[in-house]
Design a binder for these strands. Structure first.
Length: 891
RNA sequence: GGGUGAUUAGCUCAGUUGGUUAGAGCACUUCUCUUACAAAGAAGGGGUCAGUGGUUCGAGUCCACUAUCACCCACCA
């Protein structure tokens, strides 16, 4: 009984059902699998909203990899999860509350608990949406191990690591100038700044008429808090002033006492060569302040900007309460009035803004929590920085098997550069949505622990931790740490991870830091860096540009497989790629092609087909050999994470070899069981190879083949080609294949008279190196097949004698002439033109070859294999040319 | 200021140890409704691989410089 499939593949109907079936079968859960462990943790999407195309790309990558490994018989684990995304989520919810008019200032009006409730509700909603979306993308992750950076288990891990670092003195509470977002009323780490360029003015001025040095600044209003002028100690212009103190009345609460100090870091050639030092409102100046303290020559610090972004009382009565830009105008005005302003230049300035709140950050001095990256870890004689570098350069603990490979490799350099100028990491935030810092205070006492110590009056630190602190633990917190879990033992370090280059520092670096420090092992072995998706104009997808695409809409329209295929094709690691709908269309068309191939196979083959005997035709052998090669190459590509190339190869085979050639050839064969077996098995192998990329359609077709298993749990086809086909045989196969195609084409073009007998002649005499003595035999073995092809000729005769050239016209196949008697052809004029053209081409080619062979350098230095190949080529070409010219004369 | 990447067909891009005449998808031209598929099939056009120089018997591939674009980093007062 033969089965019919629907004419068009309809992904909408099957995808959800298949996913449910997979999930229920337990195929996603490694506890049901055996074999070598293979684990991937999913970069947890932020619960700030729904998933976008970038997530679709990530899911496609991860899922293809995990499915590939699962098919290869590994005990595979892909852990799903989400990230509470501290600042990002709170910022988002506050914005929504304000926009909806529910609050003007959410923190003040709602208070900590109520606002947290709002955020929690929002987060839970997006989380639910996100998890649904991940399912729609077909991601085969183990839902029983679902994690969240803010759930109890993960919080436990956070507290544990904090305590460990605290006890190792790697976490400290310090007074420093930090980045402050006025809008968000919180700190940001250096990495959370987004630098934007904007026009600004550079003012050159003196503090007072009798002040001996002019200085330049883009922030005049901060000059109300200046306490020193730093100059280079070797600068002859200013040396004489070093150590002097000048007083200037600029309108601040107290007259400024400016000390002239020497600092090596001042570039004498930059600007006026003198730097006005504002210790409270510049990270650089703060460092000078610290250095002076170390030199026992301290300078003062005056805070003139407050946490509200307004000028403080210390800025003086004229300025107090003004915003910084107002204060700036006023101060510049004053300078002009006093005739102290020397110059005003337009420049382009790069300023840091908060990536989440969007405002220009202020530098303010504050007490915050920091991770010390330079201090030696107890009993290690290494700093966190050194740990981070070692894991990627020579391997953790100098152990080569503990080396992280970043792909593409160039990102290793980027990573090292980043580490080189890494500062201590500010981890405390003044927002509420996040892990509260596990530190307790009572009067002067401090206690670090997840719960309050015994006794009355202990108050927990109100700040929360940077979200990357918890994401940094993700690779092991998801596996059960700090418990001594079995998962940790089996699956750690994880095998592979993928991420975009934009979170290399945020996330990858911190995971490496946390894992090498906490578990004394690397978090993952291979890192695959993917590029960013852009729209067809090359712009980033973003809400503000209005060009963002909803992956679910695309899935609804074209199917999940089409989306996945389009995202993975034509891309190379680390490089951005453009996304547009035509790409998905093309992928959809391919999937439909695969569907139709399957329809054909299912329709034309018998259900029970025996294993073939040795009654195989050339075409059968050919396709089997090619399939083996394909399997090998696909496997190689995937092992090297070359997704795009694997797909390209698969597509080429499926469409050009299998559909356009073998299927066509098979139509003209008798309905014999061997053919059915090959068709079915080729299809099955193809489905297996395609499954990592397009899981739904392959699984659906698999089910239609009435297999008893699910494709997801199948085994990857054998990659070791047990009896490698002899090269000679392959070449003959190739040749015959092309002959068949040529003859069919000739017939299709009505160039062959169907009533005439046709001879196929080709020269085997000079081809012994390629075909061996058996060449002729192999060909005659397959003569039957050729005869059976619907060539429209009554009979084909294969002759291997080149003398039969007379009265023949040639077709070039693989550089070897196939000669077909002229009387068998029609439309000779057309042929003439064709032959002339061919002659031109061949002459050009032969000329190139001759030139190369005439070159002594070439003949002396090139490998013999190459030389003989080229000689061979030339001989063939010359022979072909002659026969072609002969033929042309005859016409 | 430092660093990285890109420049290949009209468009979007592959091309991982340098090796015969540089590939794919889309678009284009011509033909074909041949019962798996018109979301198809057949045939075809289109590229001095950004430029210059170098290494090599041989360079899209390696090196140097130049141009254009993009991105990242930085304590640009």
């Amino acid at each position: 009984m033969k089965k019919e499939l629907e004419k068009i593949y309809n992904p909408q109907v099957v995808e959800n059902k298949i996913y449910q079936k997979w999930e229920e079968s337990g195929a996603f859960n490694p506890d049901n699998l055996t074999g070598e462990p293979y684990s991937i943790v999913m970069p947890p999407p932020n619960v700030t909203g729904v998933l976008h195309l970038g997530h679709a790309l990530e899911n496609s990558l991860m899922d293809s990899m995990i499915r590939f490994q699962r098919l290869r018989g590994k005990k595979t684990l892909l852990i799903p999860g989400t990230d509470h995304a501290a600042v990002a989520t709170q910022a988002k919810v506050e914005k929504i509350l304000v926009e909806k008019g529910q609050a003007q200032n959410p923190r003040e009006e709602l208070g900590r608990e109520k606002l947290l409730d709002e955020i929690r509700e929002f987060a839970e909603n997006s989380k639910a949406t996100i998890l649904k979306q991940i399912r729609r993308m077909g991601t085969s992750c183990d839902w029983s191990r679902l994690a969240y950076t803010f759930d109890d288990d993960r919080s436990q891990a956070v507290n544990q690591v904090f305590e460990k670092m605290y006890n190792d003195n790697l976490i400290y509470r310090g007074f420093k100038v930090i980045n402050w977002s006025v809008k968000g009323q919180s700190t940001c780490s250096d990495d959370e700044l987004v630098y934007i360029e904007r026009p600004a003015k550079l003012y050159t001025f003196k503090y007072s008429k009798d002040f001996p040095i002019t200085i330049a600044t883009t922030r005049p209003e901060t000059k109300l808090g200046d306490t020193a002028v730093a100059v280079n100690p070797h600068d002859p212009r200013y040396q004489k002033f070093i150590g002097q103190i000048f007083t200037a009345q600029v309108g601040a609460a107290k007259p400024l006492e400016i000390k002239i100090i020497a600092d090596e870091h001042v570039d004498p050639n930059f600007g006026t060569g003198a730097l006005g030092v504002t210790p409270a409102h510049s990270a650089v100046d703060f460092e000078i302040f610290e250095r002076q303290k170390a030199k026992n020559d301290p300078i003062e610090m005056i805070e003139v900007i407050g946490r509200d972004g307004k000028m403080t009382a210390q800025a003086g009565p004229d300025y107090q309460g003004l915003g910084v830009s107002q204060a700036r105008q006023k101060f510049v005005h004053w300078l002009k009035d006093q005739n102290l302003l020397e110059k005003e230049e337009d420049i382009i300035q790069s300023v840091g803004t908060s990536d989440r709140f969007g405002d220009v950050v202020e530098a303010l001095p504050m007490v915050q929590w920091f991770v010390d990256v330079n201090k030696k870890i107890p009993h290690k004689n290494k700093s966190l920085k050194e740990l981070m570098r070692e894991a990627v350069s020579v391997g953790h603990n100098q152990d080569e098997s503990q080396k992280i490979n970043i792909n593409p490799k160039r990102f290793e350099k980027v990573y090292f550069n980043w580490i080189d100028d890494l500062h201590d990491w500010c981890i405390s935030r003044q927002i509420w949505w996040g892990h509260q810092i596990p530190v307790w205070y009572r009067d002067q006492e401090i206690y670090c622990g997840s719960t309050a110590p015994k006794g009355e009056g202990w108050q927990q630190d109100g700040d929360t931790l940077d979200t990357w602190f918890s994401s940094g633990l993700w690779t092991f917190s998801t596996l059960g740490w700090p418990q001594k879990s079995q998962d940790l033992e089996i699956f750690y370090p994880t095998s592979w991870i993928q991420m975009g280059y934009e979170i290399l520092f945020f996330w990858m670096a911190r995971m490496i830091l946390m894992s090498t420090y906490t578990l004394d092992t690397i978090p993952f072995r291979d890192v695959y860096i993917h590029g960013m998706l852009r729209d067809e104009k090359g712009q980033k997808f973003s809400k503000s540009l209005g060009n963002s695409l909803d992956p679910l809409e695309i899935i609804d329209k074209y199917g999940c497989d089409a989306l996945r295929l389009s995202l993975l094709s034509g891309v190379s690691p680390g490089n951005d790629s453009k996304f547009y709908e035509e790409k998905v269309e093309s992928a959809r068309n391919f999937i439909n092609k695969l569907w139709n191939i399957s329809r054909f196979v299912i329709q034309t083959t018998e259900k029970q087909t025996p294993q073939p005997s040795n009654n195989l035709t050339f075409a059968d052998n050919w396709i089997i050999v090619e399939l083996k090669n394909l399997t090998k190459e696909t496997t190689d590509h995937l092992e090297k994470f070359q997704f795009s190339q694997a797909i390209e190869r698969l597509r080429e085979f499926t469409w050009n070899e299998f559909a356009d050639w073998y299927l066509e050839v098979s139509k003209f064969e008798d309905n014999k069981p061997e053919k059915d077996w090959i068709l079915k098995n080729c299809l099955k192998n193809l489905l297996q190879l395609w499954h990592p990329f397009i899981p739904f359609v392959t699984e659906h077709i698999w089910q239609q083949l009435e297999e008893e298993t699910d494709l997801i749990s199948e085994k990857w086809p054998e990659t070791d080609v047990s009896e490698p086909t002899k090269e000679a045989e392959q070449l003959v196969f190739n040749l015959i294949k092309e002959i068949i195609v040529s003859i069919r084409n000739l017939r299709a073009e009505n160039k062959i008279d169907p009533t005439k007998k046709i001879k196929v002649i080709f020269d085997l005499k000079n081809q012994t190196e390629y075909f061996g003595q058996d060449g002729a035999k192999i060909i005659s073995d397959h003569e039957n097949l050729i005869k059976k092809l619907r060539t429209g000729v009554s009979e084909i005769e294969i002759v291997s004698d080149f003398k039969e050239i007379k009265n023949t016209v040639s077709q070039t196949v693989s550089g070897i002439n196939i000669l077909i008697p002229l009387e068998g052809l029609l439309d000779s004029e057309k042929e003439k033109i064709k032959i002339q053209k061919e002659i031109e081409n061949l002459e050009k080619y032969a000329e190139g070859l001759r030139k190369r062979l005439a070159n002594e350098n070439f003949t002396q230095k090139a490998p013999e294999k190459v030389i003989s190949q080229q000689k061979e080529s030339l001989e063939k070409t010359v022979a072909d040319l002659e026969s072609l010219k002969d033929n042309l004369k005859k016409l």
